[in-house]
Nucleic acid binder design. Structure first.
Lengths: 342, 342
DNA sequence: CTGAAAGCGCTAACAC
DNA sequence: GTGTTAGCGCTTTCAG
């Protein structure tokens, strides 16, 4: 903030020998001010280099025109796409976007959410961290009736609008596809089961197996945090089984990639020896060799939808508080080399 | 913002039959308040579910504890890494981060910057858009003495702190490397020359050629906006030359990738027939086949540095207004398959 | 069509 | 160690 005091509406008022309220009205295009004075005031404002002080206006109006967004990691393609979508819609509607990342750290997430509340954001869009298992910080928003929209990693226990992709359906499709390619012992590298997206993906996988008369072998389901290192560990373990899998469905692309690189280094052929699928359609999955089959998640569109829902709630506030809904965005199976046995 | 009026320090004051200023002081840990009353006040605050209203505090303190960041596209690995670095440092220092993307659109960039000013951000971090050729919107910040830090796509005409990578050095290294691999007709797909990063990359390329006694052939330098489509067009044109190149240095990885895919589809061998290098080390460049040699840009670290410089300026404000500096982050050549002829 | 006055919630002289 | 008071810059009744 600058020290030389900025021109205010009072400076404009003094310049023109009128009152500050008239200036305020003119600058807000209040029709009660004549066109002539309005023009005069705007000219003076320009001349003085006046810029409205949004903070003062926010305080007075009890509205910050700001929305907060919290993601685990900004620097991840899916999340940055969502943020981009949010910004796109928010900008057009005249809202600022404050971003924060939790780094999957519960304590940071909680601090951030409280700080956003103190900043009086008009609404919050969040995808919770992997560690998050209690929700007092989010219930705060509910209790105060501040609009809240979850996306991707949502919280069942809280009643709010949610945007998810069809994790179950996507996982089902992937698994069915692997079965169609002739795979019979399909492993699953699963994510932390406190996150619904990962339980859903597992459920889709299991259901597809069952529907096709294949048994669910618990030794073929491994749980971890889906990092590249976790993928390495998991594939080692799977290969060491007496009866190793002929296909692996990884709950994200990062893990799928690390598995693929491991197999490539070991001279194990993908997809001939082991077929492989990921989830999310990270940009690299298309270009690696062999390219990785995966499920496309429309990140940008999810961000747009989340922002639309949130702003809708903000601006309808008070009137018809409508029921909260969960929007399921369609997923799309993208078949690439890593699973194409023909 | 919620309608049920939030508890304020006055509510706490009334509850305890003390004055609001005492409450304010206690909550800010002012040592002039006795430990006993401080505890009492904090207990009452908790009980009432009090959350400080940052907007009011900001207005009073003439400080928003917010920094703005403007990038061309949030949804690009390099930029989201920078944002992540900024958030990392800003959070620890108690600042919020408002993000916006210009979409390389000058008019949007200008609107955003003015809006951030109206929001009284304490400082601004920006990488300008491809179209940006006039700087009135940025001079506003200079004129008002609001700290401003440029990164990556900086503006020579404005005196401010800048963080860049060593574009010249990186391009020189890449080109030298291609020469070392035996290439003699090295083409360059260059970016828009109003952006310094691209003139520097071109300059590094030319200098390396000259140093090695190779002539600079203007027909081998193509200018465009470095999209995937631009890359396709450029490689077509280069291949149609009477004397086509034996190596191509692309000013970014996106273009390098599209060139590589084109060559792969045409059955032209990389690196044997045409060696290829990019710039930026986008995640995909490592995993494509053949993997793409490139220059690593430390995005996260640049973001951290930018935030540190900015916050340093904000908090030293008024005192010793130090000279503005340009920080050049080292680049690193990453040699991969696309240029390894051995 | 315009002005006067109050107040959004917080902080910081200045008093005592 | 605590209270009183004024004011950050803006908007909005209410009055005329």
């Amino acid at each position: 903030m600058n020290k030389k005091t900025e021109p205010t509406i009072h400076d404009i008022a003094r310049e023109l020998n009128i009152s500050a309220s008239t200036v305020s009205r003119a600058l807000n295009n209040n029709p009660r001010i004549s066109q002539k004075t309005r023009d005069k005031i705007k000219a003076a404002a320009d001349k003085l280099g006046y810029r409205p002080n949004t903070i003062a206006s926010n305080l007075r109006n009890q509205k910050s025109n700001t929305i907060g967004i919290v993601v685990p990691m900004i620097n991840r393609h899916f999340f940055s796409s969502v943020i981009s979508g949010v910004e796109d819609v928010a900008f057009k509607a005249g809202y600022n976007v404050i971003i924060s990342q939790s780094n999957d750290n519960f304590s940071k997430e909680s601090t951030i959410v409280h700080s956003l509340f103190s900043n009086r954001v008009d609404g919050l869009i969040i995808s919770i961290g992997m560690q998050t298992q209690t929700f007092a910080h989010l219930e705060l928003f509910i209790r105060k009736h501040i609009p809240l929209v979850f996306f991707d990693r949502v919280v069942d226990e809280i009643d709010a609008d949610k945007i998810v992709v069809d994790d179950f359906g996507g996982a089902f499709q992937v698994t069915q596809h692997l079965i169609d390619q002739g795979c019979r012992r399909i492993a699953h590298i699963a994510g932390p089961q406190n996150l619904k997206i990962y339980t859903e993906r597992k459920r889709g996988y299991q259901q597809a197996l069952s529907k096709n008369g294949l048994s669910v072998d618990q030794t073929l389901i491994l749980y971890n945090n889906l990092t590249a290192e976790d993928g390495q560990k998991a594939i080692r373990q799977l290969l060491s089984l007496p009866n190793p899998p002929d296909a692996i469905f990884c709950a994200n692309d990062t893990t799928a990639l690390s598995v693929m690189i491991f197999l490539r280094d070991k001279g194990i052929k993908v997809p001939e020896d082991v077929a492989l699928c990921g989830f999310s359609n990270e940009p690299f999955s298309e270009f690696v060799s062999p390219s990785i089959s995966t499920i496309k998640q429309p990140g940008f569109e999810m961000g747009q939808k989340a922002a639309e829902l949130l702003i809708d709630q903000i601006e309808k506030k008070g009137k018809t508080e409508r029921k909260h809904q969960t929007f399921v965005m369609p997923t799309e199976l993208i078949v690439r080399q890593s699973s194409s046995r023909k």
